[in-house]
């Protein structure tokens, strides 16, 4: 005989699968277009209102962006149907991992995150600032 709590847990797990499948099939994510310069600046202004970007770069696929604000790098990258932003010292961009498609920036802190920036192989990383 299955203990009632385990039974309840099992049934709940079944419902979870059902609801996740429904959410997936319904295809009703937030409309969130690819980044352009204006969208990136708007995102960063929301999250880092005191930082004024001197220069911005949009990843080749529009799924991420980078900004220089003084000695700080501001990064925005796509997560699901939204974007997540992070800041880090500009000099730390050097630790990004280069891949055939671009660069990856891993954020190891409690909030985590992996920014994937489609970045041309021939383009310098970190990008040159004005």
């Amino acid at each position: 005989m299955v203990p009632p709590f385990l039974l309840q847990l099992g049934v709940s797990a079944g419902f979870i699968v059902l609801m996740v499948v429904l959410a997936s099939v319904a295809k009703i994510p937030r409309a969130n277009p690819l980044l352009d310069d204006a969208a990136l600046r708007r995102l960063l202004a929301d999250d880092f209102p005191e930082q004024v970007p001197d220069r911005t770069w949009i990843a080749g696929d529009g799924q991420a962006g980078l900004a220089a604000a003084g000695k700080t790098a501001l990064v925005a990258f796509r997560l699901g149907d939204g974007y997540v932003t992070r800041d880090l010292p500009w000099d730390d961009l050097i630790r990004a991992h280069r891949t055939p498609d671009g660069v990856q920036l891993l954020f190891n802190g409690p909030g985590g995150g992996l920014a994937r920036l489609a970045w041309p192989g021939e383009a310098p990383w970190p990008p040159e600032r004005p």
């Binding site: 847990l9 959410a23 009703i28 939204g82």
Partner: peptide, 26 residues
């Protein structure tokens, strides 16, 4: 979800976000 699918209400669901929410509930 049905209301969102039928566009009868401004409902937004992201699959992985939904899974995380429901697993946290469990």
């Amino acid at each position: 979800i049905g209301l969102g699918w039928l566009k009868r209400a401004p409902v937004r669901y992201e699959t992985r976000d939904t899974a995380t929410s429901l697993l946290l509930g469990l």
